[in-house]
Design a protein around this nucleic acid. Structure first.
Lengths: 190, 190
DNA sequence: ATTTTAATTGAATAAAAGTTCAATGAATAT
DNA sequence: ATATTCATTGAACTTTTATTCAATTAAAAT
């Protein structure tokens, strides 16, 4: 069964290159021939593995769903501890698995970009964490460990920072990542 | 001289619509016909005002350079005050002039996207603020008002947050913006 | 009023990008 | 060893998107 392995290998190779280019240049700006060239194969071969550019995007999104589900150790003492654990684990994970940051950026791109097929957007949307987060903020505010203010705005501030950091890291992995503590300080009550 | 005014009007209209679509969908994914349709005109007319899609992008980038240069009141007491003033003014400005956030996102897009002509990238690059910021961080650390840590990482954390917030706001102006204080707390020494 | 100039349109054309396919060669099975 | 299956190529074809242009309409100048 050598063929099967090789087939999987090829698909992975294509998807890896595609992810990279989609993140760097955007989906629409990435030509199928770019992907093929970067992966050192002919366009014909690429179409042997994926029936269309859009199907490739679809599979990538589906994988992304699992890829962004990092193995979170999610027992936490309180709401602030939740954010601290999540942040430090995410940062560590981005460093160890550079694909994490790329997937993060890619999924966000899929969510917001108009003209992406609906089924793909829906898959990307299931990564959305903002809603749930607002409740945790509220709960932490009651306990007096998270600062006062509009919970939606607080949650948003935190997630936007995470998003911005992931984006920067995906593009420039050379620039040093922040300490988790700094980011959590956005919402921490002093 | 009605003609001249009208001409300017048209160009502005096209550029405004184009900015909006470029930010939402990305440059490559935005068709000239999309822009024309959204601006209620024929594609032919669009080409009467801009010789190509790329020239339109170029002019937009040039305008963006001025657009992101918001009228900053930049006398500050110390390094932390600098960040506080800058942040609150940027947030206020984004609310008053929604175009600011879009321009911010657009210019960042131009900077990072591969396949954008060099002259355009260079223009976009001159918005880059990260370098200068590192020195301010260092100086503030000496005074003991900015927290300890890698100055590059601190500067990066701050700017990534700003970028993430601008991106979110450009896309979803309905989600409330954070207080400047929260963001500056990323770098503040407690 | 008439002429001139320029705005505007949409269909025609050109260029670019996605997709197919017949032919070739390498691996696997018999 | 031979047959069979499938990976691989690149040129041909199709579709999409950018760009041009001749014709029309509206405004400005004389």
């Amino acid at each position: 069964m050598k063929r099967e392995e090789q087939k999987e290998q090829r698909k992975k190779q294509i998807m890896s290159v595609a992810l990279d280019l989609f993140v760097k240049k955007g989906y629409a700006a990435t030509k199928v021939s770019d992907i093929a060239k970067t992966a050192n194969m002919s366009v014909g071969l690429l179409f042997h593995y994926f029936e269309s550019k859009e199907k490739l995007l679809e599979e990538l999104t589906y994988i992304g769903l699992q890829g962004t589900q990092m193995p979170l150790q999610m027992e936490y003492l309180n709401e602030l501890d939740f954010y601290e654990k999540f942040t430090s684990q995410l940062i560590a994970y981005m460093q160890e698995q550079p694909i994490t940051a790329k997937m993060f950026v890619f999924m966000a791109q899929m969510q917001r970009t108009e003209g992406i097929p609906e089924n793909i957007k829906e898959t990307a949307l299931s990564v959305n964490t903002l809603e749930k987060s607002v409740d945790i903020i509220k709960s932490g505010q009651k306990k007096g460990i998270i600062r006062k203010g509009n919970p939606m705005a607080l949650s948003n501030a935190y997630w936007c920072s995470i998003q911005g950091i992931a984006e920067q890291y995906a593009m420039h992995p050379d620039i040093p990542l922040p300490e988790a503590e700094w980011i959590v300080d956005i919402i921490r009550l002093k």
